[in-house]
Simulated assay, not measured.
Amino acid sequence: MTGSRTNRTYWAAGTAVVLAALFAAGAAFATADGSQDGDGGSAAPRTPALYSPDAGFARDMAVHHQQAVEMSFIVRDRTQDEPVRGLAYDIANTQANQRGMLLGWLDLWGLPKVVADEPPMSWMESSQEGGGHAGHEGHAAKPGALMPGMATKEELDRLGGSSGRDAEVLYLQLMTDHHKGGVAMAQGCAKQCRTPVERKLAQGMVEAQQSELTLMTDMLRQRGAAPRG
Rank of each mutant, 00 (worst) to 15 (best):
K200M: 13
Q173L: 04
D157V: 06
A49R: 04
K142Y: 09
H179D: 06
L103S: 05
S163L: 11
K142N: 06
G3P: 01
G164E: 07
G104N: 00
L156D: 02
M150K: 00
A96L: 08
A25T: 07
L111R: 08
V114Y: 11
L159P: 03
D33A: 05
R78T: 12
G164L: 07
R78K: 15
T195A: 14
P227R: 01
A27I: 03
G26W: 08
L215W: 14
A21E: 09
L201I: 14
M216N: 10
V115A: 04
P227V: 09
D33S: 11
H136E: 09
R165H: 08
R194V: 10
M185D: 00
P143C: 06
M205V: 10
P119N: 15
E125V: 12
R76G: 02
D90G: 15
K113F: 08
P119T: 12
L19W: 03
A43G: 14
G138H: 10
M101L: 14
K200Y: 15
N97M: 09
K200S: 14
M101H: 05
P53M: 14
S72T: 00
L156A: 01
G182R: 00
K153M: 08
H179F: 09
P48I: 03
V169E: 00
Q187P: 06
V75K: 01
P143W: 04
P45F: 09
K191H: 10
M205T: 03
D90N: 15
A43W: 11
G41Y: 15
K191F: 05
A140Y: 09
V75M: 05
A208R: 08
S35P: 04
E212L: 08
M61L: 05
K180F: 07
D77R: 10
A184D: 09
K113Y: 11
P83V: 10
H65G: 10
G104Q: 06
P83E: 11
A225H: 06
G138D: 12
G138V: 12
G131M: 15
R221I: 13
L172P: 00
M1Q: 02
R99F: 12
M71C: 08
D157R: 05
V115I: 00
Y10E: 09
Y89Q: 13
R99V: 07
G40Y: 07
M71H: 08
P83W: 12
D81L: 04
F29S: 14
I74S: 01
Y10I: 13
L50V: 10
V84S: 01
L201F: 13
G164V: 07
A141M: 09
G132Y: 02
A134G: 13
S126F: 00
L87D: 07
V84C: 03
T2M: 12
P112Q: 01
A226Q: 05
D33G: 07
G26M: 06
A44Y: 02
H179T: 06
A88E: 02
Q98H: 15
G26T: 05
A226W: 06
R199W: 06
T47C: 13
T195R: 15
A190L: 14
S52W: 15
K153W: 11
T79E: 07
T79N: 06
S126I: 02
M175A: 02
D77S: 15
H133T: 09
A24W: 01
K200G: 13
A55M: 11
A27K: 01
N97I: 08
A134H: 14
T15P: 10
P148D: 00
M219P: 02
R8T: 10
Y89C: 04
M1L: 10
L19S: 07
V197F: 14
R8S: 10
G224Q: 07
E137R: 14
M175Q: 04
Q66R: 12
F73H: 00
